[in-house]
């Protein structure tokens, strides 16, 4: 991984990042189980910094909070979805890569407000770290990071639009166009929002590319042909990646197998093609 990106984990954990940095780091988090674990641990540690500070709010605030509570609907609980508690560390991905796959498709399938922040990642994470962490920290880790398919990193997720990640904004856009294709044993999905001019590729079980190869994303741009939209990270089979480039002018998108460093133009037949028409 890019050490520079990774280095942002600390600042991110304590919200010491700009919105821009937050979005881009959250895209990275989607691919990097190590950073997810680290962020969660550092958040838990940070929560102790103010442990010596207690300041009771004015008594009137209590009544105010409770009166607001009485008028505020609670969110629907999360479904206990495809994240069996037993799934974690015992069954690592075949290639030894972390397996953040469980639950990945949920963000796309789910309507707004439905279970995005399931517990799959949490179980995996907690189990993976169990040997190393003190119990309180492991528990706090689980509390502090909530992930599904790498989209949601905060313990809340339905707040005003500014708090949505760039990816979520596309996935939840009113004009989101959703295209599905079978691939390997599962499906891959491309969600495109013309108003956001962005597209997001989501797969929960991307087949491993042959050694030395990687998947490359392309936009079909009128007048220019296939223009690279970035590489699909190879960190795991679960993928959520924002395509680079303007999705509003493209008429389609594709995926090809290319050398790991990527290609200027597609050099092989597409393994997937999406038409925006």
């Amino acid at each position: 991984m890019n050490p520079d990106t990774h280095a942002l984990a600390g600042a991110y954990a304590v919200n010491a990042v700009t919105e821009e940095e937050r979005r881009s780091f959250e895209l990275h988090l989607g691919q990097c189980a190590d950073c997810r674990a680290e962020v969660a641990e550092l958040r838990a540690a940070a929560a102790t910094i103010a442990a010596d500070v207690e300041l009771p709010p004015p008594p009137a605030l209590r009544a105010s909070v409770l009166s607001a509570v009485a008028q505020t609907r609670q969110l629907s609980p999360l479904e206990e979805t495809e994240a069996p508690a037993a799934a974690p560390a015992a069954t690592p991905a075949p290639d030894g890569a972390p397996s953040p796959a469980e639950g990945s498709p949920a963000p796309v399938d789910a309507p707004v407000g439905a279970p995005l922040d399931g517990s799959a990642g949490v179980d995996e994470l907690a189990a993976r770290r169990r040997n190393r962490l003190r119990p309180w920290l492991a528990a706090a880790v689980a509390a502090a990071v909530l992930t599904v398919g790498g989209l949601v990193w905060q313990p809340w997720r339905d707040d005003a639009p500014p708090q949505l990640t760039a990816t979520e904004q596309v996935l939840q856009a009113d004009d989101a166009q959703r295209l599905e294709l079978p691939m390997g044993t599962s499906e891959v999905v491309l969600v495109r929002s013309p108003s956001h001019k962005q597209a997001v590729f989501v797969a929960d079980a991307m087949p491993s590319p042959p050694s030395g190869k990687a998947y490359q994303l392309w936009f079909d741009v009128p007048g220019q042909g296939m223009v690279s939209a970035g590489m699909i990270p190879t960190t795991g089979s679960a993928v959520t990646v924002m395509l680079e480039g303007d999705a509003s002018t493209a008429t389609g998108a594709g995926i090809t197998l290319e050398p790991e460093s990527g290609s200027e133009h597609p050099t092989s037949a597409p393994v997937a093609l999406f038409s925006f028409a």
């Binding site: 609907r73 609670q74 969110l75 609980p77 922040d117 517990s119 949490v122 339905d158």
Partner: peptide
């Protein structure tokens, strides 16, 4: 309050 439904 709103999110405690999702706290485990």
């Amino acid at each position: 309050w709103r999110h405690c439904t999702r706290f485990d």
